[in-house]
Every structure is written in C-alpha cells, then in structure tokens.
Simulated scan of single mutants.
Amino acid sequence: MAKDLSKGDKVTWQSHGTTVPGTVEEKITSDEKAAGRTVKASPDEPQYRVKSDKSGKDAVHKPESLKKKHG
C-alpha cells in the first residue's frame, strides 16, 4: 500500500490481472469528476488520479491499490 504519494511519483497497480505502471497526477481529497467518473474522496480517505505509462489514459485509485516504485 502506498501512502503519502505526490505528483510525479511512479507507481504500479493491478488491472485485469496485469501490473500497470504509471505516474501520480494528483491527490483527490473531495468528491469530484475524474477519469470519466464521480470520485468519492475526502482528506481522510483520498484517492489518486494516475496516468498509465502504457495507454496514457487516466485512472483513479485508492492508496491501498497503488504500489510506489523505488529506484
């Protein structure tokens, strides 16, 4: 689980059984539209908008779904 992610951090997540690499674009701390859907978030339960390195598409994930890449 990744905590305290910042814009530009390299992360990975699972999508349809595949590990997807990408970059954190923003931390979402309030309900808003992102990546084509309404995201429920708060300062205590943030979500992160990430951009896939493979497809270039945006996605939104909870911090427990993201793994920070080291190195």
Rank of each mutant, 00 (worst) to 15 (best):
M1L: 08
A2D: 07
A2E: 09
A2V: 07
K3C: 03
K3I: 08
K3W: 09
D4I: 03
D4L: 09
D4S: 14
L5D: 10
L5W: 03
S6K: 15
S6A: 14
G8K: 07
D9E: 10
D9V: 11
D9R: 10
K10E: 14
K10C: 05
V11I: 11
V11A: 06
V11Q: 07
T12S: 12
T12M: 13
T12Q: 13
T12R: 14
Q14V: 08
S15I: 02
S15Q: 11
S15M: 10
S15H: 14
G17A: 05
T18S: 09
T19Q: 10
T19E: 12
T19H: 05
T19V: 10
T19N: 08
V20L: 02
V20P: 01
P21M: 01
G22S: 05
G22F: 01
T23W: 09
T23H: 07
V24F: 03
E25K: 13
E26Y: 04
E26Q: 11
K27F: 04
K27Y: 03
I28N: 10
I28Y: 06
T29M: 08
S30E: 15
S30D: 06
K33H: 11
K33Q: 13
K33Y: 11
K33C: 05
A35W: 02
A35H: 06
G36K: 03
G36W: 04
G36F: 04
G36M: 07
G36E: 03
T38W: 15
V39F: 04
V39M: 11
K40P: 00
K40N: 11
A41N: 09
S42Y: 03
S42F: 02
S42I: 04
P43H: 12
D44L: 13
E45N: 15
E45A: 15
P46C: 10
Q47P: 02
Q47A: 11
Q47K: 15
Y48P: 15
Y48T: 08
Y48K: 13
R49T: 01
R49E: 09
V50K: 07
V50N: 06
K51N: 07
K51E: 14
K51I: 12
K51C: 03
S52K: 07
S52N: 10
S52D: 08
D53H: 12
D53A: 14
K54C: 00
S55E: 03
S55I: 00
G56A: 04
K57H: 05
D58R: 14
A59N: 09
A59V: 05
V60M: 07
H61W: 14
H61Y: 15
K62F: 12
P63R: 05
P63S: 04
E64P: 00
E64V: 03
S65R: 15
L66H: 04
K67V: 06
K68Q: 09
K68T: 02
K68M: 02
K69I: 15
K69D: 12
H70N: 07
H70K: 13
H70M: 04
